[in-house]
């Protein structure tokens, strides 16, 4: 269970939220991280090879 305490210390969830400000844009760090993860997932989905794709091409 020590790793749970370690994670909890690393990501404090019971404090005030952190916000980023760029001009008129205000966004919480949590939401910003989720958007970055979605972009990373989108790019990875385009670039990573799909299992069995080459096999299908050969059989065509």
């Amino acid at each position: 269970m020590a790793w749970i305490s370690f994670l909890a210390a690393l990501i404090p969830l019971d404090g005030l939220g952190h916000y980023l400000h760029w001009g008129v844009i205000d966004i919480s760090v949590a939401n910003f991280i989720v958007i970055l993860l979605m972009i990373a997932t989108f790019v990875a989905a385009l670039l990573l090879p799909f299992p069995g794709r080459s096999r299908r091409k050969e059989s065509k």
Binding site: A44, A45, L46, L48, F50, G52, R53, R56, K57, K60
Partner: peptide, 10 residues
Amino acid sequence: SYVSSWIYVF
């Protein structure tokens, strides 16, 4: 065959 991409799993 073009469906063989990760972008189609979402």
